[in-house]
Simulated scan of single mutants.
Amino acid sequence: MTESEKQAYFQEAEKKATSYFKDKYELDVVITSKELLPEMALDSIAMEGHVAEHKDQEFTISYDYNEKKIKNFGMSPAIKEAITAKGYDPYEK
C-alpha cells in the first residue's frame, strides 16, 4: 500500500468513525490516534479517541476499509455512562 493510499484510508476511517458516534449516539468525538493493522491479518484501521471536551470519555474503534464499515468498539466507563445518559444502549448492535 502506498503512503497516499494509506492517508486516504485514514481520512475515510476518521470520517466514518466520527459519523458513527454522531449518528448513533449524538456525540462529537476527536480521534487521537490511528494505526493501520497488519494487512496480512486484517483490512482494518484501529483508532483511539474521546468525546469532544471530555477526555475521560475514551473509546477505541476499528474500521474495515474493504467492507467499508465500523467493526469493533470499546469504551471506557465514562463514555458508557454518557451514552446511557442520552438514552442509548451502548451494547445494541
Score class of each variant (00 low, 15 high):
Asp43His: 12
Met47Ala: 03
Tyr65His: 11
Thr32His: 02
Met40Cys: 07
Gly49Met: 02
Lys71Ser: 07
Leu36Trp: 00
Ala46Pro: 01
Met75His: 07
Ile31Arg: 04
Ala13Ile: 01
Ser76Lys: 02
Ile61Leu: 10
Gly74Pro: 06
Met47Tyr: 01
Lys68Arg: 14
Pro90Ala: 03
Lys80Ala: 07
Met47Lys: 00
Ser4Gly: 10
Asp28Cys: 02
Ser4Lys: 12
Tyr9Lys: 14
Asp23Leu: 09
Ser19Thr: 08
Lys55Tyr: 07
Ala78Trp: 06
His50Ala: 10
Gln11Ala: 15
Thr18Ser: 07
Gln57Leu: 05
Ala8Leu: 13
Leu42Pro: 02
Glu26Met: 06
Glu58Ile: 12
Leu42Met: 13
Ser19Asp: 11
Ile31Gln: 04
Asp28Ile: 03
Tyr9Cys: 13
Glu26Ala: 08
Tyr65Leu: 08
Thr2Ile: 10
Gly49Thr: 04
Thr60His: 08
Leu37Gly: 08
Asp89Tyr: 03
Phe59Gln: 04
Glu5Asp: 13
Lys69Cys: 05
Asn72Gly: 06
Ser76Asn: 08
Met40Gln: 12
Ala8Ile: 09
Ser62Arg: 03
His54Tyr: 14
Lys16Ala: 15
Glu48Asn: 10
Asp56Cys: 04
Tyr63His: 07
Pro77Val: 08
Lys69Gly: 03
Glu35His: 14
Ala85His: 07
Ile70Met: 06
Asp28Lys: 09
Lys24Met: 10
Glu26Gly: 05
Met47Ile: 03
Ile70Gln: 00
Asp64Gln: 06
Phe73Trp: 11
Lys24Thr: 13
Lys15Val: 05
Ile61Asn: 01
Ile31Leu: 06
Ala78Thr: 12
Lys86Tyr: 11
Ala17Lys: 00
Tyr20Trp: 04
Ala46Ser: 08
Thr32Val: 08
Glu35Leu: 13
Gly87Asn: 07
Met75Ala: 13
